[in-house]
């Protein structure tokens, strides 16, 4: 067992973990952060994407011990109280989700994409989200949502 500390959505945790424990299972089974789902076991689908120290990771492909000392952000930590993050709102407005299973990972991957390219083209969005699979939407509305979210985020930056 290894003792690790992680901050998840602003809350510090200290946990004894087996070295083989996957980060996503630490989040889901131990810390109750069930907003991040698991969709595959080969890091193809991206449903489990979260931010680790500001960059996206697929939490099924990170060991909990690798996250020791890290700051983690999941979909549950995006909203400011009842006010959704602009990207959450954009996914809602553009009907960019149906069953919603890929949505937490899709939103986190989109936010990571915008860090490198705050005003991405449709093509850049499609390529940027290549590692996140959706089976319901056919992606068109996801592309629209990411564009809308990007605009809203840059407007927000201007006004604040």
């Amino acid at each position: 067992m290894t003792r690790i500390t992680v901050t998840v959505d602003g809350v510090a945790h200290e946990e004894e973990v087996e070295p083989r424990l996957l980060l996503v299972h630490l989040l889901r089974d131990r810390l109750g952060k069930i907003g991040t789902p698991v969709g595959c076991d080969t890091s193809n689908c991206g449903a489990c994407t979260i931010m680790m120290d500001g960059r996206s990771v697929k939490s099924c492909s990170v060991l909990a011990v690798q996250a020791d000392g890290s700051e983690l952000l999941t979909v549950e930590g995006l909203a400011d109280g009842p006010t959704w993050h602009p990207m959450q709102r954009a996914f809602h407005e553009e009907h960019a989700l149906q069953c919603g299973y890929c949505t937490p990972g899709m939103i986190m991957a989109a936010l990571d994409l915008l860090k490198d390219d705050p005003d991405p083209s449709d093509e850049a969005i499609r390529h940027g989200l290549e590692g996140n699979l959706c089976r319901c939407t056919g992606y068109s509305n996801i592309v629209k949502a990411v564009r809308r979210g990007a605009r809203a985020m840059s407007d927000q930056e201007v006004t604040t």
Binding site: P37, T74, V75, L78, W84, F91, L97, G100
Partner: peptide, 12 residues
């Protein structure tokens, strides 16, 4: 439906 789905409060 989206309220719970975009905020990670879904009941899987």
């Amino acid at each position: 439906e989206d309220a719970r789905l975009v905020t990670g409060r879904t009941r899987w």
